[in-house]
């Protein structure tokens, strides 16, 4: 049984979703730390919704489902949504919550409609994919066992998502490392940052961009809505555990990775153990695990209480 568990099937079927989920969770947690400190958590929500119309539109325009094309489409949609939110806020004078609510529901609705009407759904994307993600669909066909991890031929046949996600993670991490100090300063005190000559507006646009990038990367793994869990839950959990920002970021990465791994494994292996046929949604389970850790932190976290004013 245990040998079975760790056998070739694991490398073939379980390892790829596990790696992909972990990479996606790490990628999202990094910008998520700043979203929650800047009270922009719902911006993450908006970004994860608008990825869908971006990807669909890009596919319809170019006929290609290649990763760079999808990425460009999603980034364009993210930029459009940021403009829409700001435009509605200024022109209609609504508060930010309403402006976001209008923007992401409209763009998401447009994405679903495009998908259903265009026939793109039969080719590469479908609505379920957008709602549930597609972790279980990722299989490493070229793997024969653990030895394949060292086999260049088999490695070349890794699911393309793995390489793409690793690249995005590297980009996001590098960008965050580069702008760390100015980003921290402008998050804490925007007015001071401005007077200190920090390009505050550019930084905040950059954060939106990184969030969109992370959301695109996670979208293919866990779908639109569960991306929010990856963006917000691990950083929020970490925030309740520590007062130090570097420690918060490190902890959020730990929680992100452990939620991804635990969620994937529970979804794949728990149902048979308790007598259910088949498996349950891994992306859903990851969200549940990350939400569960947040609940625990909210109950027992050392720094859960707000400082009294």
């Amino acid at each position: 049984m245990l040998a079975d568990f760790w056998g070739a099937e694991f490398v073939l079927l379980t390892l790829p979703p596990l790696v992909i989920a972990t990479l996606a969770a790490l990628t999202c947690a990094l910008p998520g730390n700043f979203l929650i400190l800047r009270r922009q958590a719902m911006l993450g929500d908006a970004m994860s919704h608008v990825v869908l119309p971006g990807i669909v539109a890009a596919y319809l325009l170019t006929g290609s489902a290649a990763t760079p094309v999808m990425l460009a489409g999603a980034m364009a949609a993210a930029a459009l949504s940021a403009l829409m939110i700001e435009g509605i806020r200024r022109l209609a004078g609504t508060d930010a919550g309403v402006a976001m609510g209008i923007t992401f529901t409209t763009l998401f609705a447009a994405g679903v409609l495009l998908l259903e009407q265009s026939g793109a759904s039969s080719v590469h994307l479908d609505v379920e994919h957008a709602l549930y993600g597609n972790l279980e669909g990722v299989i490493w066909f070229d793997a024969t066992g653990w030895a394949s991890l060292l086999d260049p031929v088999a490695l070349a046949g890794l699911p393309p998502e793995v390489g793409g996600l690793a690249l995005v993670l590297a980009i996001v991490a590098a960008a965050m490392w580069l702008v760390w100090r100015p980003l921290v300063i402008s998050t804490f005190d925007e007015g001071f940052a401005r007077t200190a000559g920090i390009p505050v507006t550019l930084l905040s646009a950059g954060l939106v961009g990184l969030t969109a990038l992370a959301a695109v990367a996670a979208f293919s793994a866990v779908g639109s809505i569960l991306t929010i869990a990856m963006l917000i839950c691990p950083p929020a959990t970490a925030r309740l555990m520590t007062d130090s920002l570097p420690a918060q970021v490190r902890l959020s990465l730990v929680f992100a990775a452990s939620s991804a791994i635990l969620g994937t494994l529970v979804a794949g292996y728990l149902p048979p153990l308790i007598g259910l046929p088949g498996t349950v949604s891994a992306s859903g389970m990851i969200a549940v695990v990350s939400g569960g850790s947040l609940a625990l932190a909210a109950l027992f976290g050392r720094h859960r209480r707000p400082r009294s004013a």
Binding site: L35, I36, R39, Q40, A41, M42, G44, D45, L131, Y132, I225, L226, T227, I228, A229, L231, I232, C233, A236, R239, L240, A267, V280, S281, S283, G284, M285, I286, A287, V288, S290, G291, G292, L294, A298, G301, H303, R304, R305, P306, R307
Partner: peptide, 23 residues
């Protein structure tokens, strides 16, 4: 009621419950 702001609370609850629903 913790130190989290309302937007973070909303996003976390929305996605966790939705995830549970999908499961």
């Amino acid at each position: 009621r913790t130190r989290l702001t309302e937007d973070a609370a909303i996003a976390a609850v929305l996605s966790t419950f939705y995830g549970a629903g999908i499961v």
